[in-house]
């Protein structure tokens, strides 16, 4: 009880809201990389990580520098990038088209959804010999492998995204007498774009994974071929240099999609 009747005991109401809303913190991601590399460097230098367990980061950097100076880097990078780009464009464009068709037509949906579910879990690497027979030992089989690998996740992401397009917007389009094609082009596709782009992040990461598999057979140059060669020789420095290139490729692809998202999806609240 308080002595003063006009101001009874008071205390601040305890705060219990907040949280559950992660915000971007710049440089924290970079810091994590720097920290991990610094630990590896320090560990290999002091000797509690043996040279067989993990190559010294500075040695990997040195290998990378040699690769760059000898001009071999671009000799490996150029064919890999072209395989990645061509394969991914084929797979993603067929994937988006088929996904939209599945999202719009009952018969196509009933016919193709089980088929997509059946081919999704096949390790595409296992089919490489088949693709070599079908498309030849040259670039064809490599494009096919990457295209096939990006196709399935793109299809699944696309038809899910089409399903999620606000039906009231489609009714609106019909009520104003828009043609079927206009509704697809101006309402369904832009409405599905957020889902398609987030699916693209996954399918392009898979494309990079499959790049190495695609270069297992009949590739003299290429990042994948370089990694596989280093791996069979247990040359860990070169192996890691190659892996770092793939990682960087992944980061760059993800950043590009981020830019596209900011450009195309600025309307989202």
């Amino acid at each position: 009880m308080s002595d003063n009747p006009r101001t009874p005991d008071s205390k601040a109401v305890a705060f219990r809201g907040g949280g559950f809303a992660p915000k971007p913190r710049r440089w924290v991601g970079v810091l994590v990389f720097v920290l991990l590399i610094a630990i590896a460097e320090w560990g290999t230098r002091t000797g509690w990580i043996s040279a067989l367990t993990l190559p010294r980061p500075s040695d990997v950097l040195d290998t990378f520098r040699q690769l760059y100076e000898s001009g071999l880097l671009f000799q490996h990078l150029a064919p890999s990038l072209s395989r990645l780009v061509v394969g991914a464009i084929i797979g993603v464009s067929i994937g988006i088209s088929v996904g939209v068709l599945i999202g719009l037509f009952s018969y196509i949906r009933s016919g193709l959804v089980p088929l997509v579910a059946a081919i999704f879990p096949i390790p595409k690497i296992a089919l490489l010999p088949l693709f070599v027979i079908w498309f030849g030992i040259g670039e064809g089989s490599k494009y096919a492998l990457i295209a096939f690998g990006t196709f399935t996740p793109t299809v699944v992401a696309t038809y899910g995204a089409v399903d999620n397009v606000d039906r009231t917007l489609i009714r609106m389009g019909q009520s104003f007498g828009l043609s079927w094609w206009s509704i697809v082009r101006k309402i369904v596709l832009p409405g599905a774009m957020p889902g398609i782009l987030s699916g693209l992040r996954i399918s392009l990461a898979i494309a990079i994974i499959l790049l190495v598999a695609a270069e297992m057979l009949g590739a003299e140059y290429g990042i994948g071929a370089y990694i596989l060669e280093a791996g069979s020789l247990y040359d860990l420095e070169r192996l890691f240099a190659g892996v770092v290139i793939l990682s960087l490729l992944g980061v760059i692809v993800s950043a590009i999609i981020g830019v596209i998202e900011r450009q195309l999806l600025g309307w989202r609240t």
Binding site: L169, P190, G191, L265
Partner: peptide, 18 residues
Amino acid sequence: CLNPLTYIFQDFALLPWR
């Protein structure tokens, strides 16, 4: 008259990207 029967919807039905 371009569209004789024209709706106005409760939830506006505007395309958010336009």
